[in-house]
Design a protein around this nucleic acid. Structure first.
Lengths: 346, 346
DNA sequence: CTGAAAGCGCTTACAG
DNA sequence: CTGAAAGCGCTTACAG
């Protein structure tokens, strides 16, 4: 790493766009326009500038760019600290957000949910990002009001009770609840056991819990099915409940809103085969269902994230001008493999 | 949200430090110094400025600050895309990094490992961060060479083969391997089964695999113990291996480098009690060991993260001037509860 | 203890 | 198709 050229003990200062301009024999504004593509550049000029950029391994200073351009090219993501739906699920959401951001040459800033509404104010007020994605929203969430007043797009993954004027996007948990119960009703079950989220989760007021329950209850009423709710609070509890269910009927019908891996493990342990000894449907990750020969189809967390990021960039591009009404990603089922083909719900 | 005051349809522009200065009747530099604490300010002035800040809900523009101050107050963290050691572990590392960063009023930028060495160049070149933390480093990792040439601190969680001149920090996996084997040898085991990482992980060249194996092998040789390595590639495989181990002796000795939850589940299923029917020691998260009445003590991922962030800030503060030699966080054991008291290894 | 001013490295009207 | 220059909102010598 010797630097000859301008014979002196020059320290390798990181190059600026002025350096690139000089090297290419053009003005600084031309360098900027070559990089942004915001005005026509002659091929010859473009080449010279690009060469200079490569030769100097120039990278634009993000802060300077943000200051002058009023855009940070950064998306902030508010993540739950102790994710109730599991670290794996959380990472799937985040991973796809990261990839989608990078595809548009954006970066991702992580913010912990424990900063609460103040966190939103901070990242917006300091111009740390161009948009915010908020995960694990509550049925009543203080961040919602702050979001409404923020001068930048905020997209929620999840739907609070009062979603008016908000950009929300999520699985359609209500449709999911309805569909899963209807599915078992269709198979002739008059009684259906439901494994819901742990009491701790429900108590925390996470938005999807009541949404799912509403759908399931509606379908049960409609189809005249009796629902037996269980809210096991840990693996041993799940095993107890599942054993109870197995003992309760010939071929019981079970809906899994949560506790998918634990349930599938117990069933495997007991030698009970979904689709033969018990009818099981539920919300699952691909990775959870597949090892047991079950089928989980799209959408998965990454599908939600993808839609969320599409929405984020649409808002940033001004391509979704009136935005703000909420969309739903269809819910998904796990089904007994082969017997039924898995399909998504619209 | 009406804005009277200067009677006009003024849009609520986000306030700048110049606005604060005017409001407080001081100069802009004084506002800056009040915020940074870099020079003495009279109590009276400080109060007036602070009031103005509060009244205007002023937040400094991060980009402007980075540009003028040559510091971004941001730490970049490079995370693996498909974390081999699990999403839960990963999130524990990240969570503590986030919290430690916020305690120092810093933010965290997430970078995916699939950007490779270019990702390091990018975040450094664009001045997106003041320091970088790299997770899941390989035994031979191209990011290592890039890191050496970077004008900002890079701290690795994990130790590559060539760690010369690097800031690395990690569990002491070699000591752990040595200690776990020695522990079982001390209990009289002449043969010890080891559950290692999946072949896929080992093939990927993750740094801690050979480190652990080296330690375990050394202790086995020293204590004249026979090691039987297993590298199960999934839960069913783990069950098979564990069943084999259970059948192999009266009270077998088992070391868990990986697959802790799966193993503890099988043992529970089989009604085999650690400490009575089998001697089990290994590397575990608190959350993995506790439900089975076993004891995992510090250090946990959060302890490593904490040390990593201490190191990051020490480097940023110039408090670790010659830095660069690597430190190890002591390794941890899970033990049979009550029988042994868990202790950390120095 | 405080202020006036230069300057950080970009982007974007304005001009040609 | 390209350039000269103002300005984004801070921090930090420099001066007093």
């Amino acid at each position: 790493m010797t630097d000859g050229a301008d014979g002196g003990a020059t320290v390798a200062k990181t190059p600026t766009s002025a350096d690139v301009a000089r090297e290419a024999g053009v003005s600084q504004s031309t360098v900027s326009y070559v990089m942004s593509g915001k005005r026509p550049i002659s091929p010859e000029t473009r080449r010279r500038v690009q060469d200079a950029i490569d030769r100097l391994t120039y990278e634009p200073h993000a802060g300077a760019r943000a200051l002058a351009g009023h855009r940070t090219s950064t998306i902030a993501v508010v993540v739950p600290v102790n994710p109730e739906s599991g670290a794996q699920r959380l990472m799937m959401f985040v991973e796809e957000i990261l990839l989608a951001a990078r595809r548009r040459d954006h970066d991702v800033l992580l913010v912990t949910a424990d900063e609460g509404p103040a966190g939103l104010r901070r990242v917006a007020g300091r111009s740390l990002c161009d948009a915010v994605v908020v995960m694990e929203v509550g049925t009543r969430d203080d961040r919602v009001d702050v979001a409404r007043g923020l001068p930048l797009p905020v997209v929620f993954i999840g739907i609070p009770d009062d979603a008016a004027g908000l950009d929300c996007l999520d699985f359609d948990f209500e449709a999911a609840g309805r569909l899963l119960v209807a599915e078992l009703a269709g198979l002739g079950h008059r009684t259906v056991d439901v494994l819901g989220w742990r009491p701790a989760v429900a108590a925390q007021g996470i938005n999807y819990v009541p949404r799912f329950e509403r759908g399931a209850r509606a379908a049960a009423e409609e189809r005249d099915v009796e629902l037996r709710w269980h809210r096991p609070s840990g693996e041993p509890d799940v095993r107890r409940v599942v054993d109870g269910v197995l003992a309760s009927g010939d071929v019981p019908g079970l809906v899994l809103a949560a506790a998918v891996p634990e349930t599938l493990r117990v069933l495997a342990d007991r030698g009970r085969l979904p689709g033969r000894d018990i009818d099981v449907v539920g919300l699952a990750l691909d990775a959870e269902a597949e090892p047991y020969g079950l089928t989980a189809t799209s959408p998965q967390p990454r599908d939600v994230s993808r839609r969320v990021m599409e929405r984020v960039f649409a808002l940033l591009d001004g391509a979704a001008p009136r935005g703000r009404e909420h969309e739903l990603v269809p819910a998904v089922l796990v089904r007994r493999a082969s017997t039924h083909s898995a399909r998504a719900v619209g």
